[in-house]
Computed example of a mutant assay.
Amino acid sequence: MSAISKILHWLIFLAFLGLVCTAIAANLLFSKEAIMSTFGFSLPAIGVEIPPADQLFVARIERRLTWAIHFWIGTVFFTFALFRFILFLRGKRLHRFLNLFTFTLIALIFASGLPLFLRIYVEIPAEVQQFARSAHYLLIWLFSLFVVLHIAWVLSLENGRKPGIISCMFQFRGNLLLLLAVVTLMRSPVVHAADWAKDPDYLRAVAYMEGKIGVIKGSKSIKNCPYAKCDEVADSVNRNVKMITVKTRNYPRMVAHFKKSVEKGNPLAAGKLAKFLIGRIDYRSEVPDPTLIRIGERDTGMRYDDYVKLARKSLALAAKHGDCYSMYKLAEFQRLGQLGFAKAPDVAETLYQRVVQRCDPKSFFVIMSRSRLKR
């Protein structure tokens, strides 16, 4: 494919992109409804009152500029397509057919849009305007379908079939690497931090953790209670026995929602869940303390082995995404061989270095990580 053909191809693409952007702007950002909605607060602010019918007229004038830009970009689009059509008058039969089909479609789109632009300057019957508008919309959707099929064809050619004249301007490996890079960035915690914070399971788990929902209320009797709160309710039989209301959080529900969020890959949920679970695991002892096991099973609604596995999984996910607590604790476990991790001093050192590089220099985790690295 010649350099001129490649240039024309991308100029046509840029013009098409401009048409799409101006069409979206005219129908959404600068639509009649959007402009009229601004009159609701802007006109009273300056003490001006305009009837709705006149507001509609003004709105149409305002949005006219957007459609004018759309029309002139369309003119450029048609001109580039005409040049490319002339350039490909000779060639293989398939290429000539596709060239003719594409140009005919673009020419019809331009022709159907022309009356819609000229109606301000030339008197055009309403029936002609309506027909042109309907044809314009139909042809636009047809051309959009053609663009999608064109892209699919290019990808198909670059996926191992015989390269054609269109695919010559692409290098699939380079495009694939670029696509992978974009996907990687989109999946990074920086990009998706706001999205993860909106995860329904994460939000519900945090609500359970903070006691905003699912609080379980109960009564507890305390003999000779030293707290002023115990004076609120006294036992009618024995005045020395006080009854107080005890509120406990529904941790099993919280863990269940955090677990669902972690399974989706949510690093925010992983960080909070890891910290919660590790606080209930006797990882320093060779034989876990039975009391801690009971507390852990009560608070998680899971067997000990299961919530230890969940803690390891959550810790690894949160550490991978830069959570300072998780990186430091994982480094400690790798250094000491705790929580089922094998001793790996090199891995621990790398994690300590990440903590020092990424976390607040004044934080406990950085101070401790530096002390570990000095040894």
Rank of each mutant, 00 (worst) to 15 (best):
I109G: 04
P115L: 14
R133P: 00
L116W: 05
P115H: 07
L118F: 14
P115Y: 08
E127I: 09
S112M: 04
F110N: 08
A126I: 04
T102N: 09
R133N: 05
L114I: 09
P125G: 04
R133G: 01
A132K: 02
F131Y: 09
E127D: 08
A132V: 04
E123R: 00
R119K: 15
H136N: 04
F101N: 08
L116A: 08
L116I: 12
A107M: 10
A135L: 12
L118Y: 12
V128E: 05
S112K: 02
I106Y: 03
G113E: 08
S134C: 00
V128Y: 02
T102W: 00
F117I: 10
S134F: 06
V128Q: 07
L100S: 11
S112C: 08
F110I: 08
I109V: 14
L98S: 06
F117G: 04
I120W: 14
F110S: 10
I124N: 11
T102M: 12
A132I: 06
R119C: 12
Y121S: 04
V122W: 11
A107K: 03
F110D: 09
F117R: 05
T104G: 15
L98N: 12
T102F: 03
Q130L: 14
Y121R: 05
Y121L: 12
A107S: 11
I124L: 13
S112W: 06
F110M: 09
V128S: 08
A111K: 10
F117M: 13
I124E: 12
F103Y: 13
L114W: 11
F103I: 07
T102Q: 03
A132R: 01
I109L: 13
A111P: 10
P125E: 06
I106V: 15
V128D: 01
F103D: 08
Q130S: 14
A107R: 01
L100N: 03
Q129F: 08
A132E: 04
A107N: 02
L108F: 11
S134L: 11
L105A: 15
E123L: 00
L118K: 01
G113Q: 06
S134Q: 12
I120F: 15
L118R: 01
I109H: 05
A126T: 02
L98Y: 05
H136W: 02
F101P: 01
A107T: 06
S112F: 03
L100D: 02
E123P: 00
P125A: 05
F131G: 01
Y121C: 00
F101Q: 13
R133T: 04
N99D: 14
Y121E: 03
Y121P: 00
F101D: 14
E127Y: 00
L114Q: 01
Q129H: 12
L105R: 03
F103C: 10
F110E: 09
N99T: 15
R133D: 08
A135R: 02
F110V: 09
F103K: 06
L118S: 03
R119L: 02
A126G: 00
L116T: 09
F110C: 09
G113V: 09
T104I: 13
F117P: 05
S134A: 13
F110K: 06
A111F: 15
E123F: 00
F110P: 07
I106N: 06
I106H: 04
F101W: 13
G113I: 10
I109T: 08
L118G: 02
T104N: 13
